[in-house]
Structure formats: structure tokens, C-alpha cells
Simulated scan of single mutants.
Amino acid sequence: MNKTKGDIFQSAIKVFSKNGYDGATMDEISANAGVAKGTVYYYFKSKDEVFKYIITEGVSLLRQQIENINIGKGDYSYKLRELSKNQLRLVCENKDLFKVIMSQAWGGKIRHSELRQLLKVYMEDIEKFLVKAMEDGTIRKCESSFLTYMYFGELVSVAIYNVIKNDSMKLDEVTDNFIYRLLNGIK
């Protein structure tokens, strides 16, 4: 992504996060990016196209992390910790992006459906990872789809916790707590 498109991308994330989809305007996206409105239209035909681009890129970042950790070194005990740590870091470092993604996951419009489809593919990646962790013996065997959504829900909950508490997240400590709770439940 070139610098101008990157500036528009970052601006759009801030504008959608602050104003929601309906309140976001191409004028505000261009002003916030420091570019002419025509420049935004050079890269994107519509607000909807900008939105699709930011959610596609956001989910792609999450999926790329899974792939990188999956092919990396270590057993699945190590990989599960690294995946959790990196996913938490990505979500917390990109709060506005994930606020946009999570706020638009519900609804009946085409954009909502397209976002849910992206999230479904992401969840399939997580599920494949968790199945490998089960096969490796890191995680007890269970219904993988349920575990996948539980894992995702806990990631989102930790990110929300961080936003509400306004903590400067101690990533290793939070990751250790997250993994402990994931593997041991709340007994």
C-alpha cells in the first residue's frame, strides 16, 4: 500500500470508529487524511468501497498472524501462547479498526453480511489451528467449532477489558492469564 492510500486507510479507520458507518463521510475521511476528496475517489469509488477495504485488510492481518505462527517453529503449546499474544497485541494496537469491525458485525445490510463472511473465514483459520493443538495434545479434544468461538470471544473480551479499564496492557501477563483461563476454565 502506498503512503497516500495508507493515509486514507488510517483516516477511514478513525472516521468510521468515531462516527460509525452512517455518520462517516468521504469529506471527513479526506480531510483527516490530509488529501483532496478527489484523491480519495481516485483510490475508492465510494464510502462502501473504503469500508470494505479496511475490514478486508483488518481481517487479513489477523489471518496472516495465524498462518505465520502455524508454519513457525515450536509445538502447539508454544504456538497457542504466541498466537494469543500476537492476536491480543494486534487488537489492542488497532483498537479503532477492531471497534469498526465489531460494531459492524451485526445488521442486515450487505456490508454486514460481507463482514460476517470475512469473520467466518477467520474463524475457520482459528478452528484449524485449534484442531492441530488438539491433535498435538496441547488442548483436550472437544467440539472444535464451539472452542473456536469461545477462543474468539475471550480475545474480544480481553480487548474490551483493556479499553474499559484503560490499562496499558502488560501483554505477557494478560497472555498468561488468558491461556491459563482458556486451558483451565473458571473451576
Rank of each mutant, 00 (worst) to 15 (best):
M1Q: 02
M1K: 01
N2V: 02
D7A: 02
F9V: 00
F9H: 08
Q10Y: 04
S11W: 03
A12H: 00
V15N: 04
S17C: 10
S17T: 07
G20T: 08
D22I: 11
A24F: 08
A24S: 14
A24M: 08
T25N: 05
T25G: 07
M26Y: 06
D27K: 12
E28Q: 12
I29R: 02
A33K: 01
G34K: 01
V35G: 04
G38E: 07
V40G: 04
Y42D: 02
F44S: 04
K47Y: 09
D48G: 12
D48M: 09
V50F: 11
F51G: 04
F51N: 05
F51S: 06
K52Q: 13
Y53L: 03
I54A: 05
I54L: 14
I54Q: 07
I55V: 14
T56I: 00
E57I: 06
E57W: 03
E57D: 11
S60Y: 08
S60K: 13
S60G: 13
S60V: 01
L61A: 02
I66D: 01
E67V: 12
N68G: 03
N68R: 14
N68A: 11
I69K: 07
I69D: 02
K73V: 10
Y78P: 00
Y78E: 09
K79C: 05
N86T: 05
L88V: 01
L88Q: 02
L88K: 02
R89T: 02
R89A: 04
R89W: 03
L90N: 05
L90S: 02
E93R: 01
N94R: 02
N94T: 01
D96V: 00
D96Q: 07
F98P: 00
F98A: 00
K99C: 04
K99P: 01
I101V: 15
Q104N: 15
G108E: 12
G108R: 13
K109R: 15
I110Y: 08
R111W: 08
R111L: 13
H112L: 06
R116M: 09
Q117S: 13
L118A: 11
L119N: 05
V121H: 10
Y122W: 14
Y122Q: 08
Y122V: 04
E124D: 14
D125F: 09
I126G: 03
I126T: 02
E127A: 05
E127L: 03
E127N: 07
K128T: 07
K128Y: 10
F129Y: 09
L130S: 06
A133R: 11
A133F: 08
M134E: 11
E135P: 00
E135S: 11
E135T: 06
T138N: 10
R140A: 14
R140K: 14
C142P: 00
C142G: 12
S145C: 10
S145D: 08
L147P: 00
L147Y: 02
T148I: 06
Y149W: 10
M150V: 10
Y151F: 15
F152L: 06
F152S: 06
G153H: 01
E154R: 10
S157P: 05
S157K: 15
S157I: 03
S157Y: 13
A159I: 04
A159F: 13
A159C: 12
I160K: 13
Y161N: 14
V163P: 01
N166M: 14
D167R: 15
D167L: 14
M169H: 03
D172M: 05
E173H: 12
V174Q: 05
T175R: 06
F178E: 03
I179C: 07
I179V: 15
Y180W: 15
R181M: 14
L183G: 10
N184E: 15
N184C: 15
I186H: 14
K187D: 15
